[in-house]
Design a binder for these strands. Structure first.
Lengths: 358, 358
DNA sequence: ATCATTTTTGGGAGCGCTCTCATAAATCAT
DNA sequence: ATGATTTATGAGAGCGCTCCCAAAAATGAT
């Protein structure tokens, strides 16, 4: 028992396979009486539709894949991804979708995973974390038969569907805040230099500076890779040049950088002020609370799933784009006492009507 | 093109569907010449087997599910789970398995997810994170048709397959270390009180104390829930009773507790010593490096997948058990200078030959 | 050569479902 | 009642693969 198929239920209920199928799938073309009878049989005997058979017949699997390419190896060190994954997972639950997770660890993994992703009858669509420019996986997926939504602006935007937060304006806002507070030697710790995320945040920084008529001192800019340790190391390099404020492109790096500052016996924000990026939960529990750009990570995941579903159902003909707004959250590390909190909101666009990247 | 099926390849190669299937599945019953010819056709024209059709015909999906029940809601706040997920994901890659992630957010999710998990032709097996005792999801999965391996000792062990680390002896070791260092007022911050994990670690603590002939002072024990904030709050409660050492059941709680200690103007480890549990990456980058029990999290995930595969292939007749050893990593927060590092190793057992839980 | 064996290949019957189309039953109008 | 409509149900043909079994080809033994 318990391994009954449609046919068995049909026999028990004295109806045809088709009718049971209709009941199971909530088709309106069943009389109330029949529906009730069949439902009772199912209730009593237990029936679980066979997913494989259903997928084969309907050409729909109700599964989507979340793919994290190799270049994003710092995956589960950074709390960003788990949070994103959670957002995506919850959104999937709401849409009766099953989420498959593909973490690419190394080249071998990539070779193994790619054909698995491309199998037909496996996934209805793919959420692909944007990674490096020379990403072979990226190209193969983009040119595959299934809808792919890229998470984060990809290098090659031409006709690819993607969703991102407005990194440029977020970074600009963060930097402008520092400028308006009167800091004179504002530095930046970048993320992985080859990621579009870092490139965009850098652009925002530059925009803010130049609009304020400030020179950018290259010795006040250090390269990181989004990790805590890279922030620490970057700050050590910056310290001799006496910055009085730092825009760190991630909270985690900000934390590492602040560690370096404190080890040097300096005070935050008196000697060095900070603005981070992400607004991770820790940002507000730190001894000195971190001023940072709030990313709507969970919301981002939800929107991504919505968009992908839309692509699955309505096609990807005009490339889909969505840029989400961020919010600067002012706490203690930036010093001063100015307040300015734009509201969070999403902006949806289609076609080439693109808002963000400079 | 590119959406060819077995039949099409067969026609192009001038052989039968069966033969192509054999080539694709590496069956030895194909002549070298034919194999080469078919492979070439596939190479040139592209062929991706249809997963649904394959699953339907073979009764094997090559997918496993990782299920995180609702009671473990602190899921992606705690770095433990992401790391575990990564371990599981990598192990899946190595076994050509696809991983589906089921995060249960609330009761609604649970109702939605359960039937999805139970569908036939969906999953070959399930990895289920152990949660609360009154877990309805747990019962439904355990009594389902598919192999379920529980991650962490479940409440009801009778004939359920599970894998866990040896929490009792790990906690005992940590506590004994504190005792041997001469601390007199040793306290403990527990994890979520209804989890077996916390229960086992508590048992280890008690064992160590009683074997050393120490009384346990209930006012030196505070309840947490594995979160940073709960550690902070617990420590605030403990401080008035002047403990000189704390065994925190998780690193994250230790971090919270140390924050409380420092806010109180006390010094670590001079005034209060600490031993944590998990050995998260942060443990070794903290200003005062954390002495803690190293959990082989990634290894745990790998072993879990191995065991589950074993269950899928050979059945679950004698219930499978596996208990992994841990390692005490001595750093700065415990004070003293004693050293003792047992090696990491796994111990596999079957049937009722159970090692750990007291 | 001839027959027994082994290796290679093809054919066909499902796997359990969906979905279209045709038929049967019920409803309505006249 | 009778035919026209609407609604409910059933039958059948796939979906694309695997896997068993039988046929054919190749190999070996005598």
């Amino acid at each position: 028992m318990d391994n009954l198929k449609l046919e068995d239920i049909a026999k028990l209920a004295g109806v045809s396979r088709s009718t049971v199928s209709r009941v199971v799938n909530d088709s309106p073309h069943v009389s109330a009486a029949t529906r009730k009878r069949v439902e009772k049989i199912i209730q009593n005997n237990g029936y679980h539709p066979n997913a494989a058979a259903r997928s084969l017949a309907s050409q729909r699997t109700n599964m989507i894949g979340l793919v994290i390419p190799r270049s994003t190896s710092a995956f589960f060190t950074d709390p960003y991804f788990p949070q994103l994954t959670q957002g995506v997972a919850f959104a999937c639950n709401n849409h009766h979708l099953t989420l498959s997770l593909f973490l690419v660890g190394n080249q071998e993994d990539e070779n193994e995973i790619t054909p698995r992703l491309l199998r037909r009858g496996m996934l209805d669509g793919i959420l692909l974390q944007s990674g490096n420019s020379d990403d072979n996986l990226f190209r193969r997926l983009i040119s595959s038969h299934l809808p792919v939504l890229v998470l984060g602006r990809p290098f090659e935007e031409k006709s690819v569907n993607y969703i991102d937060v407005d990194n440029v304006s977020a970074a600009k806002q963060a930097t402008t805040h520092l400028i308006s507070l009167g800091y004179q030697r504002i530095g930046m710790i970048t993320g992985a230099i080859h990621s579009t995320t870092s490139i965009d945040r850098q652009a925002g920084f530059v925009q803010a500076m130049s609009e304020a008529g400030r020179e950018i001192d290259p010795s006040l800019i250090a390269e990181g890779d989004f990790s805590e340790n890279s922030g620490y190391i970057a700050m050590k390099k910056l310290l001799p040049f006496r910055p009085d404020a730092i825009f760190a492109q991630s909270d985690v790096m900000a934390i590492g950088a602040m560690r370096a500052v404190q080890e040097a016996g300096l005070e935050i924000p008196k000697d060095v002020a900070f603005v981070g990026f992400d607004d991770l939960p820790v940002a507000s529990t730190l001894p000195i609370k971190l001023t940072t750009v709030h990313q709507p990570i969970t919301h981002f995941g939800i929107k991504a799933v919505d968009l992908l579903i839309d692509m699955i159902e309505k096609g990807t003909k005009p490339a889909k784009r969505m840029i989400l707004d961020t919010e600067l959250v002012i706490r203690d590390t930036c010093g001063g006492k100015s307040v300015s909190r734009p509201t969070v909101q999403g902006t949806e666009m289609e076609g080439s009507a693109l808002k963000a990247p400079a």
